[in-house]
């Protein structure tokens, strides 16, 4: 991957991410989140992880985002709220600063560590190897996740079925 592609993809990703957080309309946020995810799928692809990139596109940019959008449309929030942000603006500044502190804390020493092989050093794995590892080395985690998803499906249905306070019947 050439630096040019990486930098451009990175800048786009950061911009989309910021737009997700800062857009007033939640639907716009959802749109930018989908875009950011597609952008990230490209980065994955560039990192020689084509399967993950595909899953990213299908699961995230596809399924999860559709779910978000559907829920948003279900709510049908017509009247827009005065502010997208909660609480005291001063405190929000502090929140921003603390997020920045986190970012700075990790990145401050990042580039001072010794030489690491540049991009392109990675070995490409085919999907077959991925599948073999998944069903041998990580079989237990895989099964456990299957169970988790089942539980979540049941739980989500159970949660949504409960009657809201304003409904009488």
């Amino acid at each position: 991957m050439s630096p040019t592609i990486f930098y451009s993809l990175s800048i786009v990703l950061v911009v989309f991410s910021l737009l997700v957080v800062l857009c007033k309309n939640p639907l716009h946020s959802a749109l930018f989140l989908a875009l950011a995810m597609i952008d990230l799928a490209f980065i994955f692809f560039e990192l020689k992880a084509p399967f993950i990139a595909a899953v990213q596109l299908m699961v995230y940019a596809g399924a999860v985002m559709v779910m978000f959008v559907m829920v948003l449309m279900l709510f049908d929030l017509k009247e827009d709220e005065e502010s997208a942000f909660s609480g005291n603006p001063v405190i929000n500044v502090f929140k921003f600063l603390s997020a920045g502190l986190l970012c700075w804390a990790i990145s401050s020493k990042l580039f001072s560590y010794g030489d690491v092989a540049g991009l392109g050093a990675g070995k490409e794995f085919d999907i077959k190897a991925l599948g073999t590892t998944l069903y041998t080395k990580y079989i237990f985690a895989f099964e456990a996740l299957g169970l988790l998803l089942l539980l979540i499906a049941v739980g989500a249905v159970a949660l949504s079925r409960t009657k809201g306070g304003t409904h009488d019947s």
């Binding site: 990175s10 990703l13 950061v14 991410s17 910021l18 997700v20 957080v21 939640p26 946020s29 959802a30 978000f68 829920v71 948003l72 709510f75 709220e81 502010s83 997208a84 942000f85 909660s86 609480g87 929000n92 929140k95 921003f96 603390s98 997020a99 920045g100 986190l102 970012c103 990790i106 990145s107």
Partner: peptide, 21 residues
Amino acid sequence: LSILIFSIGAFGVLVRKNIIV
């Protein structure tokens, strides 16, 4: 890049009002 996105996401979690966002 990763930590940058992470911080942006975290900031969003901290300040936004809408549960979906």
